[in-house]
Design a protein around this nucleic acid. Structure first.
Lengths: 227, 227
DNA sequence: TAGATTGTTAATCGATTAACAATC
DNA sequence: TAGATTGTTAATCGATTAACAATC
């Protein structure tokens, strides 16, 4: 049965955008919103929003629209933001520490329990009440505390090693912020690879676009005219 | 003419993945690759790779495949990674500092020139040879040095203010790492909004998926059976 | 009730895959 | 040459948009 209604990843990826915009509306104390209004905020069509939402249920009212707070909660619920997720950060370098300081996590139920590192200088450090623990304790800590998500923030060359350790714990998902891609093949762990620079490359592409097309048109014009 | 060959964003977003995999192949000293082999690495079809690449040119050889290094350079060129991009980081807090330490930027031609902050305790700090300067000097520094890209790493409530300042400088693109979305509407500046947590939400969705579908099927089963 | 807006079906559009002639 | 693999066209598939009856 579950398969019958499996929703496409294209749709899922839009949910955080809806969630964000609804959050903005709440901040602005707006109580109701139509698919049309929301679509202008998000930058898509009203049709698309209605189609997307109807994958999961009927959240609106004809002639009225959607109640902002209710829809916000519904989407949060779909994204699993209604429960707390226990999370650890592996690697307490610059990135790891910056993440431990990141306020948004708590807001959405991601509870940073601890950081782990091998560097003795970092072990014992207290970042906003979150401790840096010895990497050797990681396995046992995770299992003892039923930690669900691990944030990968170690140097590239440690990724394999850490992955191996994590694969034998209760960890269910890895949020990989290192440049090295992790495939979720064998481990059964869900992986989200962020690949930080991808986005910057797209920006670079856009900045470069015009001059690129001028160069391309020289070689490609031929074809364009022929067809 | 440029419009005739404008390539869809769906294609563009795949280019960094190709670029990454080709980078891996170079590391492994592989000299040639077929669309089929590359497709297995990337996780798509060979057809798609050939279609994507042919938007930009004919980079392969029939019966042979693609020269890894050449294709890597071609894609880098499309993404604008062949030139150096002058970049500043706005905000020298945890995030800004972590970014200044991030080695990948230099590798792909993104040259971090300086950080900017209002906090006197941070001004003057030297991070890997990159200085934290007074935010008041930002405008003039950017214009004087022809800085192209600004990384937005300030607290949420400073985004508007910084955006206003940047919009009157030579900055052409903003890489926005704050949770607050920036629309590129009026300024003429290209913006890439990263929205850090989106990815984490997708991971959370996946972890939550099964139990969600079980709940959904109760309400949705009706419809599925009816149709 | 009349006006508005949903949920949902049908039509369109674009993106992906399959297939194959061209050619190295 | 024979085998392999591209570049490219044609077929398929899925996602988006349009339209409208249902209904608040």
């Amino acid at each position: 049965m579950a398969d019958d209604i499996k929703v496409s990843i294209t749709v899922i990826k839009r949910l955080p955008k809806y969630h964000y915009c609804l959050g903005e509306l709440i901040r602005e104390k707006v109580k109701r919103v139509s698919s049309h209004e929301l679509s202008k905020m998000v930058g898509c069509t009203a049709s698309q929003i209605r189609q997307d939402l109807n994958n999961f249920g009927e959240f609106g009212q004809q002639g009225y629209g959607y109640k902002v707070e209710q829809l916000y909660r519904e989407i949060a619920n779909i994204l699993g933001l209604n429960t707390t997720h226990k999370m650890v950060i592996v690697g307490a370098g610059n990135f790891g520490q910056a993440l431990a300081n990141y306020e948004e996590f708590g807001k959405y139920g991601f509870n940073v329990m601890a950081l782990f590192d091998v560097n003795p200088k970092l072990i014992g450090l207290n970042i906003r009440g979150v401790l840096v623990l010895n990497a050797e304790e990681m396995s046992s800590y995770i299992d003892k505390n039923d930690v669900e998500i691990a944030v990968m923030a170690v140097p590239e060359n440690k990724v394999e090693e850490v992955l191996y350790i994590l694969s034998r714990t209760s960890i269910r998902g890895i949020w990989n912020l290192t440049p090295r891609k992790i495939s979720s093949n064998n481990t059964g762990i869900m992986v989200e690879n962020v690949h930080f620079t991808d986005n910057l490359f797209i920006l670079s592409y856009r900045l470069n676009e015009e001059s690129l097309y001028q160069k391309l048109s020289r070689t490609k014009r031929k074809k364009v005219l022929i067809q």
